[in-house]
Simulated assay, not measured.
Amino acid sequence: MSAAPSPDDGARRRFHLEPFADHLAFERGLSARTLDAYRRDLGRFLVFLRDCGVSEPREVTAHHLRDFTYRLKDDGLAPTSIRRAQSALRTYFDFCLAEGLADDDPTEHLESPKMWRRLPDVLGRDEVVRLIESPDPEHRMYWRDRAILEVLYSSGLRVSELTGLALSAVDFDDEILLVRGKGSKERLVPLGGPARRAVERYLREVRPGLDRGRGEGRVFLTARGRPLSRQTVWNVVKAATEAAGIQRAVSPHTLRHTFATHLLEGGADLAAVQELLGHVDIATTQIYTHVDRGWLREVHRAHHPRGVRG
């Protein structure tokens, strides 16, 4: 895994990282090794907050912490590393509360990897439509951003899978993507009609003007012709969320969860969803059985011999 990006000096000052490090060293007596680990974890967190437009401790919410945890999971961090990062965040916000830098503790209900059973918010079908249709058609990157949103929802890709998607992995005739997932394992994922059309328009009308020989054969490129970064994908989703008027946090992982949930609500088999998501263990996929209880009751009534109310 590549080294975590570092926050700039301004962010370090606004979030009081040096006083916090002094607190850990001189008041808590933590070892140099633990201090380095906390600095790395908090540095990664500040870069994430920059992408979210958060500029000081008081603006951090439980939603930010939850989505940050899912980003760590998507980046492939082990549960032990995620728990360590969460410990660093809890210690940091204890410090912020004591110093008057925050009004409440957003880590109060933060779930550890062992407790993951609840998912980030899932979008409703109307919200998905609003989100996908929110980019400005007059913007030069419209078809790229539209294609990104369509593929995230249509195929349920992780951010890393989207940014690593190769041109050779797209089969428009069969509407299939060859996705390289965790552990370099490959799987085939259907590409829905709207997503296929958006990707085709992007490849035909936008990407040729971006590619300056530095695109490394990837589907999605930046405005400068480089392979798309994860941060750029997050920014595209964030901008679309704001433009769509959705008043809650939405991340690329939210679209992945929405993809799985809508499949199950439509009657898809759990094992099929497992295959589409690239989960090795079906127990991981079973968290999607959180789907609306009212829908489950309706399925039971419609299909079970003794499901009729009365």
Rank of each mutant, 00 (worst) to 15 (best):
A4P: 08
P7Q: 08
P7K: 06
P7N: 09
D8M: 11
A11W: 14
R13I: 12
D22P: 02
A25S: 12
E27R: 14
R28E: 14
S31H: 13
A32D: 14
Y38Q: 00
Y38E: 03
Y38W: 08
L42I: 13
G43Y: 03
G43W: 00
R44N: 11
L46P: 05
F48I: 05
R58P: 04
L65W: 02
R66E: 12
D67E: 15
D67L: 09
T69C: 14
L72V: 09
G76R: 09
A78E: 09
R83S: 15
R84D: 06
A88I: 04
T91N: 09
F95T: 13
G100W: 10
L101T: 10
A102T: 07
D103I: 05
D104R: 09
D104Q: 09
T107V: 05
T107Y: 05
H109V: 04
P113N: 12
M115Y: 04
W116N: 15
R117G: 14
L119Q: 06
D121F: 05
D121K: 15
D121N: 14
G124I: 13
R125M: 08
V128S: 02
L131I: 08
I132Y: 02
E133L: 13
P137V: 06
W143I: 11
R146L: 14
A147S: 15
A147K: 05
I148F: 10
L149R: 00
E150V: 09
R158G: 00
E161I: 08
G164Y: 02
L165E: 02
L167W: 08
S168I: 12
D171G: 07
F172E: 03
D173Y: 05
L177P: 00
K185T: 01
L188I: 02
G192D: 03
P194A: 07
R196N: 01
R196W: 04
A198Y: 02
V199A: 01
V199Y: 00
E200S: 11
Y202N: 06
L203N: 09
R204C: 02
V206Y: 01
P208N: 13
G209R: 07
G215L: 12
E216Y: 11
E216A: 15
V219C: 04
A223P: 09
R224G: 13
G225K: 06
R226A: 15
L228W: 06
L228Q: 04
R230L: 10
Q231W: 01
Q231D: 02
V233T: 03
V236W: 01
V236M: 03
T241I: 09
T241D: 08
A244E: 08
Q247A: 12
V250H: 12
P252G: 01
T254L: 04
L255F: 07
H257E: 04
H257G: 08
H257P: 07
T258V: 11
F259D: 01
H262M: 06
L263G: 10
E265C: 11
A272V: 06
E275Y: 04
L276A: 04
L277N: 01
D281S: 09
A283W: 08
T284V: 12
Q286S: 10
I287S: 03
Y288E: 03
T289R: 05
H290G: 10
D292H: 06
G294I: 10
W295D: 00
R301I: 03
H304T: 11
P305E: 03
G307Q: 07
V308K: 14
